[in-house]
Design a binder for these strands. Structure first.
Lengths: 242, 242
DNA sequence: CGAGTCTTTGATGCATATCAAGCTTAGTGG
DNA sequence: CCACTAAGCTTGATATGCATCAAAGACTCG
């Protein structure tokens, strides 16, 4: 059950057998969330932080007139964080049926000042840095990429993230979002997202098969996404990306 | 010289006389940056972090084809932070002539484990939380607000931020950005920004006078910006914004 | 099999980009 | 002090990306 969490963290920094054991015993209090049910994330430092086990969560901002923007996603193995913002109704909301797990014990272990689990703490730190990177990337997507580029870019990012937790393979990944949810992530209308996805399929950049997105030509997709060549082996670590 | 820094931090949490003294003596190593000269921000934890003293800095992402997006601004009194992101050429760049100051001493004082300066540490924490909030708001602006709303929203945010450091008054603020820079913040073309500013002027929501933007009707501007009523007295603190 | 939810399609309009040119301002050197 | 220049602002014309509305297919699930 904690497999995606282990793999995700280990992808940022190698973990000892001890540390994997800490993950297995440290997570507690499994909760299931139905699609659409609001979920208030914890806003204090470590108490009550949760990790997604299965399904996806999104951090949603609601405008007064009903417009919505999903500002961040939390995939299996990733942390739910981020506090409230003034004058904005924001919640975490499950996108589909999602399970989360209390991670406070795990986090306090990793953050113990005497550092008995240095690999865990390091992996943690890098994972959070990656999360900040994603926020920046998201703003860039929304600000300067066309709908076409933006969609490709998001798909590439989701692929990389699911690779880290062992949920995707090199040429495909699960994707169980409705086009409406996608449109709220991408800042587009649902109808337009539909047309963009059709175009990407016509261009043989993506394909659908049984709830999965298939990438026939990942390199070309990355180019369309406005990204450089794929990161070299090992370059996935944030510290390697000077 | 450190006045904006003192005021900005004090706006987040009251500071003792001692702590103000720490700020005055803690800042060191003044640097001047010419408009457009790239500036690599520090990426380690505390060493070499800098604070803007005068002028504005922007965190800019460059795309391969020349498009640019400014992802965050640092105003006087605010910190330069944020590391590099993979596959993206990103730098801090002065928007006009800017001066920054080394803040490592100041920061290590505030973060001393024995906490001799609790007000400073608290102000610091809240300032950083506000900075994260701004990133989220920026994504929301770019994703779901129209050009008109987006521009109004940015102006309101800049006004609030400059109020905190004593650089703006209730009804006006300095603004020395070219429309092209504005367009790179807002994710719009420079021509369109020009037309939006004209419209805002026609609607008597803003006016220009001698390098300053004047707000004849702040409340109406906030409404146009898609924001709720202005925060009540004291509600500027992030902790008050549940 | 029916009912809702999702996807797809077409028609239309608006928001915003792009291109090109004129204008205004401030700075610069003769 | 006055061209001269360059940067920024403004304007108009045109093109296009994307939103919106409406309705018709496709799934999925009870």
């Amino acid at each position: 059950m904690t497999r995606p969490i282990e793999l995700k963290l280990a992808s940022f920094h190698p973990l000892s057998q001890d540390e994997i054991e800490v993950i297995r015993t440290g997570v507690a209090d499994l909760q299931t969330h139905q699609s659409g049910a609001d979920f208030r994330p914890p806003d204090d430092a470590a108490r009550g932080r949760r990790i997604v086990v299965s399904g996806w969560m999104g951090w949603v901002a609601h405008l007064l007139d009903g417009r919505r923007q999903i500002l961040a996603l939390a995939l299996p193995g990733e942390l739910l964080e981020g506090a409230a913002v003034a004058n904005l109704h924001m919640v975490y909301s499950p996108l589909g049926v999602t399970q989360t797990v209390d991670a406070s014990r795990l986090i306090s272990q990793a953050e113990r000042p005497d550092r008995p689990y240095p690999g865990l703490a390091e992996a943690w730190t890098r994972a959070r840095r990656a999360s900040a990177d994603r926020a920046v990337r998201h703003a860039l997507r929304l600000g300067r990429l066309s709908g076409h580029e933006r969609t490709a870019n998001l798909l590439v990012e989701l692929h990389e993230r699911q690779l880290r937790s062992g949920l995707a393979d090199e040429r495909s990944m699960p994707l169980r979002l409705t086009q409406e949810v996608l449109s709220d992530i991408l800042g587009l209308s649902a109808v337009h997202v539909n047309r963009i996805l059709q175009q990407l399929r016509r261009e043989d950049l993506i394909a659908y098969r049984a709830g999965r997105v298939v990438f026939p030509d990942p390199i070309r997709l990355r180019r369309v996404a406005g990204l450089l060549e794929p990161p070299a082996q090992g370059a996935l670590c944030p510290t390697d990306q000077t």
